[in-house]
Design a protein around this nucleic acid. Structure first.
Lengths: 168, 168
DNA sequence: AGGGGTTTTAGAATGATTCTAATTTGATAG
DNA sequence: CTATCAAATTAGAATCATTCTAAAACCCCT
């Protein structure tokens, strides 16, 4: 369970990450951060937008998307993706099983990992849910794309320093 | 590794399931089934459509969606969902962790399950992928929706038999 | 040949997300 | 205090996968 100081700490991490990233903590952005640090309901963009608007009625959807993008870049929010791309299908193994998803080329490989016996029942007993299926995906870079990356990077200079700016 | 008879067997299961479901195995549907039983690339609807069109050029996207829908209903295909609904966000725990997703009301709960130590590295060693994050979701019906279901079902008659029909 | 269902079609509708070009904002220098 | 300028924000258009819809095509059976 989250205590008040947990939330304060989370909020401070988020703010620090954005400042380090070189962007301003504007009132509207601050409100998005606050909702995300507070809510345990896994809100979607529409939820966030509606809530921010209670305080800043002129806020647009684009601002919420913009703030989330910044938080994603800095690892300050976990996105549960339901709409990244087109659905993919597996007709050879119609039972749920783990996959390896390449973030670069969208290749998807099956992964052979036996599922713990009776896991659905165990989770059901603990949480009250009636579990019917699972989804376990590992995301990363496939061997091919790693090679491509190496050749692209070889002989390239280091990063350029990002700009920094005073807050609002 | 899939052998020819594996594929034949898979195909036969799919066909049998659709026949049992009471729909015809038309040439276009048969081609969708064949691709799904054969392909190890987790195709999306566009891929399937393009491939079916090589054999049946007049095939529409709607037919592919229709066939997939039938296969999903009968449990003959695994859908890796990337576009079911709006994305959801967790700002309290930005690290990847397991979730319980209610299929009825879309409620999402965090699940406390410690991740096996060094799992990313182990998978990397086995597959060559450079794993950077995971996603583990359990899908089911939350306690609230189970209650609603029970009250809705109490005193209701059984199912009506489905129609059955000769094939094309 | 005709009836009556299923299947298929093209195109419109939907909905989340991304893009774009214009406007607003706020910190800062003069 | 005002002008300046980049960052922030906006409304609305564009995109894209998916779903919906109403009409047309198809097939079996008499």
């Amino acid at each position: 369970m989250a205590t008040g100081s947990d939330i304060q700490q989370r909020l401070e991490e988020m703010r620090a990450a954005l400042v380090k990233r070189g962007v301003a903590i504007t009132p509207k952005r601050a409100k998005v951060l606050e909702i995300l640090a507070t809510s345990d309901e896994h809100p979607n963009v529409g939820d966030l937008h509606a809530e921010v608007q209670r305080w800043h009625p002129s806020t647009s959807l684009a601002t919420v998307y913009n703030t989330i993008e910044l938080l994603k870049e800095t690892g300050q929010v976990l996105e549960l993706e339901f709409s990244a791309a087109a659905n993919r299908y597996d007709g050879r193994r119609p039972d749920s099983h783990p996959h390896l998803v390449c973030l670069e080329c969208q290749r998807i490989d099956d992964l052979e990992v036996p599922e713990p016996e009776g896991i659905f029942e165990a989770i059901g007993a603990e949480t009250g849910y009636e579990v019917v299926r699972q989804r376990l995906d590992y995301y990363g870079i496939c061997p091919n794309c790693q090679k491509k990356r190496e050749s692209r990077l070889s002989g390239q200079a280091g990063f350029v320093a990002l700009n920094d700016r005073a807050n609002y």
